[in-house]
Every structure is written in structure tokens, then in C-alpha cells.
Design a protein around this nucleic acid. Structure first.
Lengths: 255, 255
DNA sequence: ACTTTCGCATGTGTCGTACTCATCGGCGGC
DNA sequence: GCCGCCGATGAGTACGACACATGCGAAAGT
């Protein structure tokens, strides 16, 4: 039996213990790799592999030429590690992703309506304005940037780190799937999206959680409809058999 | 500026790409470290550090004397083991985490009520039973294992990959904070928890989404209350100034 | 003929060393 | 007083060697 345990694994634990024992706070610098190796009675190789693990987990940040640092909150949401890699192999994945976004954005909107500070409200409004300007001037990049900033600002105003990460990751994944071939947003739905943003913003400003959640849900649902239409077109324009991304597996109770 | 990017980081991505390109499935073996080094045109050192990152992310599993394998979903359990040292820098983090779990588990319960197959229902019931047995026999490990299996089974029955990941991550983080000092669950709330599990299960079985969501929310809320009580005790038993984990920063609109 | 054991091949884990290169701070020249 | 060079620090990369876990097949023992 023996249950072998690699050294870099115990080293990783020891480094974390060390952080606690030294009372290091996020942003603080920890000993150099060589020092750690000496203190832990092991080689630099092992220390380095331990550090890689800790950095992957978002506990430690390494900077070439500077040193090792205890990761701050933002480091925790960096490196997108839920999502680390994912390509929608199946149309179901796209639906799941929308469903996920719907859940997260409903909740962030709800919370934002309760908790947004004046400054955060202004940030949301400002982002919505940028998005609208992007649409009116036909500048797609500005529209997308504003759209992203809008939802991010709401997530920030929810004052929940984890929800913010969830929203960010979901949007990142969706952007990724956009690149695969599904493009939406600036199509026919764009004008509508601008109005929906306004509705969400007003509900949050008014401090009405449920209205904000409803408005957010509607926004996501309409965006999904947009995608659906585009997928229909795709399926239609493709001769059967040469099918695109879709592998269509289990028919499921809809979304 | 230049935005320097370490080689082990790109190597990690390349390995993931390779897994996709080769169509490797969980449990499959991937090339040896030396082969990878040759294929990626780099050194074994870099490959090893990349592999450590991927193993920390739960995508790859390394076994001494055997080789590297694509992680099966349970490979994640290994990650939780040595991540056991994690301290929520702030009490707010704990609250946020509960709030996050509440959102995710409400939604998974809601969806499970709509979508659970008979087999999944049985899995949920079975896990709940194990948890109850763990409580009745006073075996804490069995209780925790059953509790985890219960929530995981519901997440699976929601048929949404992303929500499942969210639930898993949230529970993992919470487990980590438990080890620091905040211990809950098997305390006074355990008996209640068993009943709440039953209520959730019944609502899902009955196919009543909103009842399931309400039951799940209640469960989380009660668990949080349990934590609150324990934290109170902690604060009380510690002389002021020698403060424990809590660094208490911004008072915020409650949860 | 069956089982046990031994040894070898494979492949990850660990160590040491030498070097590249980004970063920072100080010293000297303009 | 400002700019730029320059050396020190410390992470990133590479290579080579060996330790040690694992699996498998062949040889030895019953």
C-alpha cells in the first residue's frame, strides 16, 4: 500500500504553513526560492514545482526578476481556473452556459439593487451609455466593450467576490464560443439590448431587487433567442451532413 | 510593456490543446514528460512545471513509475487534500461564500426538480441516507461524505455542467475554511440538516421547483446561522486584541 | 503445471549546476 | 539635477544524473 506522497506536495503545504506562521498578508513578499529550499530542507526544483501548484490555485504569484508574492483577491479570480479550457463540443453546452449566466446575472442584479453605492451606480450608467453610443455609431468594438463593462459593473456592485468571478468566467467562456463561430449581439438584438440595459439600470437605481432580476433574466433570454435564430440560419445554410459545431445529443426539457 | 509570459504557462495550454487534439478521454494516458518536452520543443523542466499546474487545476494526474493521465472528474478530490490550508482573509469572505452557495444550490435544486431522472433521484436519496446514517451512528466522516454526495448528486441532476462546477468549487472552498478553525455541520445543526436534506429531496422528487429552491435556501441559511453562532463563541472566548482569524473590515448590508 | 520471485524496462520524482533575462537601485557622467 | 549604465538579485530555462515506484515477463522453486 504505502500511499506515496510526492515531496512537492508536502512542500506546497509547508509553504502555506509558512505563510500563516509568518502572518503574511496578500501582496506581501515571501522568501526566495533558494531560501525556501534551504528552510524546507529540499531542492529548489521541488520548491519551484510546489510554487507552480500554489500559483495555479491562486494562492501565490510569481514575478520574474522580483520574487514570490502572496496573491491578493484579484489573483484569486485570475487565471480563470474553472474554465481553464473548454470548447463547446455540443450545442447543449451553449444552452447550459446561457442558463448559468442567467442564474448569476439575475442574482448580481438583485444584490446590486440592494447594495450599489452611488459611485457604482454611476459606473453602471456610464457603461450602459458607452454601449449605447457604440450601437448608435455602429462601432462594434465599443458596443462589446460597453456591454462587458456594464455587466461587470453590476457584478461589482453586488459586493460578492464569488458571483463576480462567476459572471466574469461565464462571459469569458461565451466570448470564447463566439470565436468558434456563433456570433451574436450586434445583430438584430443590439437595439433591443440597449433598451434592456436601461431597464436593468433603472431597476437597480430604484432599489427594486426583483424588478432588476426580472429585467436581467429577460435580457439573457432575448440574447439566447438571438443565438437561436443565428443557429437556425446556420443549420439551414449548411447542407445536412456537413454539420457545423453542433453534435446534438440529448434532447432535454428546454431552457 | 511586453507582457512577459512564462514558458511553463504556454506549455500548460499546449498540453491541454494536445489532449483535445488527440481526443483523450478521462483516464487515458498521455505522452511521457520526455516526449512532451520533445513535441513542444522545450525542456523537461518546463513540461514538469506545466504538468504541476494542470494537476493543481485537476486536469491531469501524475503517478510515479506509471505516467501522466487525464484526470477523471474525481481526480479533483486529490486537489482538495493538500489545499487544506486556506484562510479566509476576512469574515466577509465567509459570508460571500455562503451567499454564493445559496444562489447556486437554489438553482441546482430548482432544475433538479424539473430534470432529475429516476436513477439520479435514487442517487440523491441514497446519499441523503448515508448522511443520516453518519449522523445517527456519530461517524463524522460518513456524515460529511454523505452531505457532500447529496449536494453533488443534486448538482448532477440539474444537468448543467457549469452549475455543477460552481457548486463543487464553492463546497471545496468552504471545506478549506472549515479546516482553519470554523467547524460546523456535525454540531448542533446536524440533526436539523438531515431533516432539511429530506425536505429538499422530497421537493425534487415531487417535481416542485420552487419548493425545492426554498428548501435549499433554508438549508443554507440554517447552516450559516450555525456558523454565526460558532463565530460568536470564538469572538467571545478570545480576549479582545488577540483576535483570531477575523479581521472584520467593512460592515455590509448583511446577508 | 502453477505459483512465486527476481530483474529489467519504463517513467516520474529529486538533486545540482550552469546559465538567461527581467527588475531594481545605486553610482557616476553629462 | 537628470539620465543612463551597471551590478546585484532572483525567477525562468536547460541539461544530466540518479533514486525509486510500477508493471511485466522470465527464471526458479514447489
Amino acid at each position: 500500500m504505502s500511499e506515496y506522497r510526492p515531496g512537492y506536495e508536502v512542500a506546497a503545504e509547508q509553504v502555506l504553513e509558512l505563510i500563516v506562521r509568518l502572518g503574511l498578508r496578500p501582496g506581501d513578499r515571501l522568501p526566495t526560492e533558494n531560501d525556501l529550499a534551504r528552510q524546507l530542507g529540499t531542492s529548489r526544483t521541488v520548491v519551484r514545482e510546489a510554487v507552480k501548484i500554489l500559483s495555479a490555485l491562486g494562492r501565490v504569484r510569481a514575478q520574474k526578476g522580483r520574487g514570490l508574492y502572496v496573491a491578493d483577491d484579484e489573483g484569486m479570480l485570475g487565471a480563470g481556473r474553472w474554465a481553464s479550457f473548454f470548447l463547446p463540443a455540443d450545442l447543449d453546452h451553449v444552452y447550459m452556459l446561457f442558463e448559468f449566466r442567467r442564474t448569476q446575472e439575475m442574482e448580481t442584479s438583485r444584490l446590486a439593487a440592494c447594495r450599489a453605492t452611488p459611485a457604482e451606480l454611476r459606473a453602471i450608467e456610464e457603461a450602459a451609455g458607452r454601449c449605447r453610443r457604440g450601437f448608435e455609431t455602429g462601432r462594434e468594438d465599443l458596443f462589446n466593450e460597453g456591454d462587458d463593462a456594464f455587466h461587470t459593473a453590476i457584478a461589482t456592485a453586488s459586493h460578492n467576490l464569488f458571483l463576480r468571478v462567476a459572471v466574469r468566467e461565464a462571459r469569458r467562456l461565451q466570448a470564447q464560443s463566439n470565436l468558434i463561430g456563433l456570433r451574436g449581439s450586434v445583430g438584430g438584438h443590439a437595439a433591443q439590448a440597449v433598451e434592456e440595459h436601461e431597464a436593468i439600470y433603472q431597476a437597480i437605481r430604484a432599489g427594486d431587487p426583483e424588478a432588476a432580476a426580472r429585467a436581467a433574466a429577460l435580457h439573457i433570454d432575448n440574447t439566447l433567442d438571438d443565438y437561436r435564430r443565428e443557429i437556425q440560419q446556420r443549420l439551414f445554410s449548411h447542407p445536412a451532413g456537413d454539420r457545423p459545431i453542433v453534435s446534438g445529443s440529448s434532447a432535454r426539457p428546454t431552457l
